[in-house]
Computed example of a mutant assay.
Amino acid sequence: MTRLIIDTDPGIDDTFALVLACASPEVDLIGVTTVFGNVGLDRTTRNALRVLALCGREDVPVAAGADRPLVHPHAHRAGAVHGEDGLSGMADTLPERQTGLVGTDAVALMVRLLDSSPEPVTIVPIGPLTNVALLLAAHPSVRSKIERLVIMGGGLAGGNVTAAAEFNVWSDPEAARRVLVEEPVPTTLVPMDITTRCAVDLSWLDRLAASGPRGATLVRLTGTYRKHYQRTLGHEGMVIHDAVAVAEAIRPGLLRTSRMPVEVECGMGPARGATIADPREHRVRGEDAPREIDVAVDADLDEVRTFLLSGLTG
């Protein structure tokens, strides 16, 4: 049983990721925290609560976190991709959760859950890394309670919000650098290079919609998102980035990884938010090379898609 905390900014692909975690018998989802990102914090928080209600999970504690980056203002949201409400204009069609937010913020909730856990916990940040950077900076004692971070973010060959930067890292590069470069916590980075290769097609979505009311609801939420990906992919289908990261958290090794150091560009030029990985051998990098993390670089793509569909359909 994998104990998970998901830090999220729902978002369509975040919604698929949350449902996957809720539907997986291998997962003990002990908490959900929210962060600004695809839409503002008020909407990401509302969406997280409603997705948990869709899954019948009144028991999972939810806390809201950062509403802005650590240093510089957030330039824009992703309404053109996810819809202005984050769920293709369909957020209000999801059920209201009877259990509201816990009476504390995201960092405090994570500290409480980590301190009280009888075993290490996997944290899956699938939005900007602001909450996680704050957690590790203010509460270094919790590092030993974290089994690993499984982070959806970064683009090794380029970005999706700029030519250089992927959205989650670009949204708060300073926080991303703190977590990916400086913190001595076991980390698996799932960049958009591999998540994009795991894109699902119309047949996959049709099978999900036919699986039952929850699957049909998920597919109904994807209108704006699918229009975006029809333009970018050139065919019917979509990329569910965040669900791929949750899949790796549930089944370690589903994605093939390579250990390497990464750097995050925090300057204010056109490369801001770029994630730069160094795949050279350690002997080439030298003794002063920075710490290494596991970066997902490959997978059996059909196996990933099958795992996602099986999990989402229960």
Rank of each mutant, 00 (worst) to 15 (best):
A63W: 07
G65K: 03
G159D: 15
V142I: 15
E281H: 09
D67Q: 02
I5E: 08
G215H: 06
N47L: 03
P61Y: 10
A296M: 03
A199M: 01
M238C: 08
V142L: 12
S171N: 12
D59V: 04
L129W: 02
R68T: 11
S310Y: 02
C55W: 04
G100H: 13
K145E: 15
F36D: 01
R291D: 00
H139I: 10
P95H: 13
P290V: 03
G65D: 03
V219E: 01
G86E: 08
E84G: 11
G89F: 02
M90D: 10
M1L: 06
M152C: 13
L312F: 07
L20G: 02
G253N: 07
T45N: 09
T232L: 03
D115N: 11
R197S: 09
I151P: 12
V51Q: 04
A133H: 04
A17F: 04
H74P: 00
N131G: 05
S211T: 01
C55P: 04
M238Q: 08
Q98Y: 05
A48T: 15
L156T: 10
H74N: 08
L221H: 05
T34P: 01
V219F: 03
F16Y: 11
H228V: 05
D115K: 07
R256F: 09
D59S: 10
D201R: 09
H139L: 02
S171K: 12
L109S: 08
L149S: 07
K227F: 00
I293Q: 12
G89L: 05
V284C: 05
I146M: 06
V239I: 15
P128S: 15
A75M: 13
R43C: 02
G223T: 15
L308Q: 06
G56H: 06
L129F: 11
L312N: 07
D172K: 09
M1H: 11
W170H: 15
M110A: 13
V35T: 14
V200F: 07
I194S: 08
L4K: 03
R259E: 14
S171R: 12
D59G: 04
V121W: 12
M152R: 14
R283N: 00
I5N: 04
I250L: 02
S171C: 13
G311H: 07
I123T: 14
L41K: 01
